[in-house]
Amino acid sequence: MVGSSVVESRVGGGVSGSGGSGSGGVGGSRGRSVSLWKRRERGHALLFAAPSVLLFAAFVLLPLLYAVYLSFTRFNGVVDPVWVGLSNYESAWGDSAWWNSVRNTFILAFGGMAIEIPLSLFLAVLLNRALKLGGFFRTVYFVPHVISIAVMGVVFYFLLRPVDGVINGLLSPIGIVAADMDWLGSRPTALLSLILVGVWASFGVNTILFLVGMQTISRDIYEAARIDGAGSWKMFSRITVPLLSPILRIVVMLSIIFSMRSFDLVKTLTDGAPAGQTEVMFTYLFGYYFGLDHGAQYGYASALAVYAAIIVAILSVIYLYLSRSKDGGSR
């Protein structure tokens, strides 16, 4: 296939060479000479596309198919895979620890959002007032975004140490928490910690995205509303939010999708502790792939992966649908 296109490109090259010398400057032949050039260069163009496309095929597409195949087998990496049909999916259906992980994933996703979206909106409204130090605050809020969340998981693990830890050391004198509060020791507080660290990591990014959106809203609209006697709450709810809704939608869906995929923070901060109660979808199935406790149950892990992919895909399709309908409306 590659060979034939090379031959074709050589033949095409000869033709375009003669045509080019005869009528290169004539306007009518431009389209023709472009398509000839394209044909002559097609072999090279394929070489241009090859590296990215091949790597994508080998390390994104092929693994997908392989994972789906494995989900129908029993496989421990030593003995050849044995076809077992849907039995992995059936076991997963009744695996309460798995569904607990799914529930945790949703709690983290929507709990984080419930704090983050209002907070980011509020900060963006404040920053949108053209303050002298606005740029400084924007920069500071952005910092967590450039830092590895996996490393921050480990750092927060240190900061949250129950005895003589930094966060307890700061909070217990004010009387907010007990001096030896074990944040990661029980499910509710461990989930709360994951949510708050997640908010710490991403509220700034959302604030900046909202701010970018708000800066495209014309000042004249606010001016007109002010003359009509609208207060700041009315201007926020009747002007800012509606005009911001395209960005709002994108931010909401992106945060949901990113939290559904979350792995790094949970793995490095709680690692499922206590006793697997804070596992999320991907840390849980990761355990069946690489964990020491479950051993290598690649077939079962793959079935869980397909479940997870379906859940993420459903939410992603909703996102796609919403962003498409937005594009359609504005055109």
């Binding site: 390390f59 995929r261 199935l285 793959s302 992966a305 997870a308």
Partner: peptide
């Protein structure tokens, strides 16, 4: 939109 990052870790390692 599939978000199979973690899900395909093992196949990718095998390949």
């Amino acid at each position: 939109f599939l978000g199979m990052g973690t899900a395909t870790l093992y196949p990718r390692l095998v390949i």
